[in-house]
C-alpha cells in the first residue's frame, strides 16, 4: 500500500529530490503537501482502496506521513 501511495504522492503532489531518502515517518506536510494535495490524495485513496474516509477525520495527524496514512486507511478497510 505504501508503495502505491508513494508513487502517487511523489509523482502527482509533492516533488522531493530523493524519494528513496524520504522515510515513512518523514513529514509530508513540511515537504509541501497542501490542502489541494490532500483533497486529491483522499480522492485517490477512496477510489483505489474502496474506502470512505470520514470528513471529520481529515486532519493533519492522519495525513502527515506514509505510516499515518496507511494506519488511517487500514482502520477503515477493516471496519
Amino acid at each position: 500500500m505504501k508503495k502505491k501511495l508513494r508513487n502517487f504522492i511523489f509523482q502527482e503532489l509533492v516533488f522531493v529530490a530523493e524519494p528513496e531518502q524520504f522515510s515513512d515517518d518523514d513529514n509530508l506536510l513540511e515537504a509541501g503537501l497542501d490542502s489541494m494535495g490532500i483533497m486529491r490524495l483522499i480522492m485517490f485513496i477512496e477510489n483505489e482502496y474502496g474506502v470512505t474516509l470520514p470528513d471529520t477525520e481529515i486532519e493533519p495527524d492522519n495525513v502527515q506521513s506514509f505510516n499515518a496514512l496507511e494506519q488511517w486507511i487500514l482502520r477503515h478497510q477493516n471496519g
Binding site: L29, D34, S35, I38, D55, T56, I58, E59, P60, V63
Partner: peptide
C-alpha cells in the same frame, strides 16, 4: 492557520 488542512474543522 492549519484549518485549511481540515475542511470539517
Amino acid at each position: 492557520a492549519g484549518l485549511t488542512l481540515s475542511p470539517s474543522r
